[in-house]
Amino acid sequence: MNRRLLTVFIAMSLSWSSVHAGYWKDSNGNPSPDTESRRSVGEFGGLLLITSDPDWEKKWNTSPETIPVFNEAKIVTQGKRIFTLIFFANPELDANHEANITCDLKIIRPDGTESINQRDTVCFQGRLKGKPNNLYLAAPVIDFIGEPGDPTGIWTVDITLKDNLHKVVMPLKTAFTLK
């Protein structure tokens, strides 16, 4: 995906009130279809993004009016770092206005073996700082660097995002190629 298209995608996906009535909306309010890496279940939304930006955190930690632009990483060379970011929006809140989101994390090597397989990892627990339908970054950020001896080919990232209060389970999937 070229940079211009990625900017449009991020602007669509990171619209600060983009999840409503069970679908993602673009900046004009038009529905955007679900993909493997961006979907909604009911009003709960999830997004999975792999970026090569070493400054992803600085880009994310801006005012809600600023839409960050991330460079999507689809091809990675050995020795280069990438970061898998998990986003969510509009979780169910309890009586104390707190969310409870966990996720299963799995990375599958090109040979079919698992590099990571963690279940029920805390993604977010507690009070949201802002409106529930804002986009939030989940706690786990997967930092990957291709090392000598790592198999080349397609690595698959499978994340199952779980809104435990609303009993919603959302599978998200993306991939990158290690060369």
Rank of each mutant, 00 (worst) to 15 (best):
N90F: 09
N90Y: 11
P91H: 02
P91G: 07
E92D: 03
L93W: 04
L93D: 10
D94F: 09
A95V: 10
H97Q: 15
H97F: 12
E98I: 01
E98N: 10
A99P: 11
A99I: 05
D104W: 09
K106L: 06
I107D: 02
I107G: 04
I107K: 06
R109T: 15
P110C: 05
D111C: 07
G112Y: 02
T113H: 12
E114H: 04
S115F: 06
S115Q: 14
I116G: 04
I116S: 10
N117F: 00
N117L: 06
N117T: 08
Q118W: 00
Q118I: 07
Q118H: 10
R119M: 01
R119Y: 01
F124S: 10
Q125K: 14
G126T: 10
L128P: 12
L128G: 10
L128W: 00
K129T: 15
K129Q: 15
K129R: 14
P132S: 11
P132A: 13
N133A: 12
N134W: 12
N134I: 09
L135R: 06
Y136A: 13
L137Y: 04
L137M: 12
L137A: 10
A139N: 04
P140E: 08
P140D: 06
I142S: 04
D143K: 12
F144H: 07
F144E: 02
G146Q: 09
E147L: 11
P148N: 11
P148W: 05
P148R: 02
G149H: 03
D150T: 08
D150N: 15
D150Y: 14
P151T: 05
T152R: 14
T152I: 14
G153Y: 01
W155Y: 14
V157N: 13
V157F: 10
V157H: 14
D158P: 05
I159H: 01
I159E: 01
I159G: 00
I159W: 00
T160Y: 00
T160L: 08
L161T: 07
L161D: 02
L161C: 12
